[in-house]
C-alpha cells in the first residue's frame, strides 16, 4: 500500500512540475515585455507616424496595416473554410478520397509559414499581378489559416448531434434545409471561435507578409488595399534585428511587442465571449 501511495505522490509531483514550468515561462515572457514595453506606451506612440528613421514617433501605420490585412485574411478564410468544412462533413461521401483530402488539409497546417510567403509571392504578387500589397499579404495569410478554419469548423459541425439532422430529414426537409435550419445555427459559434483563433495567429505572423506586402518603413497610411503597408510583427522584427540603431530603438520594439500581444489577447478574448454567448443560447 505504501509503495502505491509513494508512486502516486511521485507521479503527481512530476505533473505539478510540468505545469509549473509552463506557467513560469509564460510569466517570465509577459513580465519581460510588460516591464520593458509599458514605459513607451502613450497616446502618441499609438497614434503617431514613425519619425527620424523609426527612432522616434509611434507605430500607428503598423497597427492600421495589421488591422487591414487581418480583414482580408478573414474575408478569405472564414467563408471558404466554413464552405469546405460543410462540404467535407455533410456532403462528401465517406471514403478514401475524403480521407485523403482531410489528411492533406491537416498536413497543410504543418507547412512552415515562410513557404506560404513564397507561394504568395509566386501566385498573388507575380502571377495575379497584385504586386506587394495588403491584398497579396492578406490572401497569403488567408490561405495559411484555411486548414485551421476548416478543421475547427468541421469539429463544430461534428458536435451537432446526428439526431438533429435525422429529425429534420424525417420531417421531409431536404439535406440543405436540414443543414441550414438545424445544423448551422448550432455550429456557427464553434466555427467562429475557430476562425477568430486562426486570425489571431495570422495577425502575429511575419514570414508570409515578408515578401508579399509588408514595408520596412512607410511614414504614411496605405490609401488602398493594393498599397504596401506596415505591420506590427514585421515592425517588431525590423526593430529588433535589422535597425541601424538596435540598442536605441529597443524600447520601441518592446512597446510594439506589447501592443501586438494585447491585440492578440483581445482577439482570443472575443473568441471566448462569442463561444460563451452562443453556447448559452444553444443550451436554453
Amino acid at each position: 500500500m505504501k509503495k502505491k501511495k509513494m508512486e502516486q505522490f511521485i507521479g503527481f509531483m512530476f505533473l505539478r512540475v510540468c505545469i509549473g514550468l509552463v506557467i513560469l515561462a509564460l510569466v517570465v515572457i509577459l513580465y519581460d515585455i510588460f516591464s520593458k514595453g509599458s514605459g513607451v506606451i502613450n497616446w502618441e506612440f499609438l497614434s503617431a507616424m514613425p519619425r527620424k528613421g523609426m527612432t522616434e514617433g509611434g507605430i500607428f501605420p503598423a497597427i492600421v496595416g495589421t488591422f487591414l490585412v487581418t480583414i482580408i485574411t478573414a474575408l478569405l478564410s472564414i467563408p471558404l473554410g466554413m464552405g469546405c468544412a460543410i462540404y467535407l462533413n455533410e456532403y462528401a461521401r465517406k471514403g478514401k478520397v475524403t480521407r485523403l483530402i482531410r489528411m492533406s488539409i491537416r498536413n497543410l497546417s504543418g507547412v512552415p509559414s515562410i513557404v506560404y510567403g513564397l507561394f504568395g509571392v509566386v501566385v498573388f504578387v507575380q502571377l495575379l499581378q497584385l504586386n506587394t500589397s495588403i491584398l497579396s499579404a492578406g490572401l497569403t495569410l488567408g490561405l495559411m489559416t484555411l486548414p485551421w478554419t476548416i478543421t475547427a469548423s468541421e469539429e463544430a459541425l461534428k458536435n451537432v448531434p446526428q439526431s438533429y439532422r435525422d429529425g429534420s430529414l424525417a420531417l421531409g426537409a431536404t439535406k440543405w434545409q436540414s443543414i441550414r435550419t438545424n445544423v448551422l445555427p448550432y455550429s456557427i459559434p464553434g466555427m467562429l471561435t475557430g476562425a477568430i483563433l486562426g486570425l489571431s495567429r495570422a495577425a502575429g505572423e511575419t514570414a508570409p507578409i515578408l515578401f508579399t506586402g509588408a514595408a520596412f518603413y512607410l511614414p504614411f497610411l496605405p490609401k488602398s488595399f493594393s498599397d504596401q503597408f506596415m505591420a506590427l510583427p514585421y515592425h517588431l522584427y525590423i526593430m529588433s534585428t535589422q535597425h541601424h540603431a538596435i540598442e536605441k530603438v529597443r524600447p520601441i520594439a518592446y512597446g510594439t511587442a506589447l501592443v501586438l500581444i494585447v491585440l492578440i489577447f483581445c482577439m482570443n478574448f472575443v473568441a471566448i465571449i462569442v463561444r460563451y454567448k452562443l453556447r448559452k443560447v444553444k443550451m436554453e
Binding site: D166, G167, A170, L171, K282
Partner: peptide, 12 residues
C-alpha cells in the same frame, strides 16, 4: 411517413 426515434430528439 412520419418517424419518431429511439432517443427523443427535440431541436434546441
Amino acid at each position: 411517413v412520419g418517424m419518431v426515434f429511439q432517443k427523443s430528439n427535440p431541436f434546441p
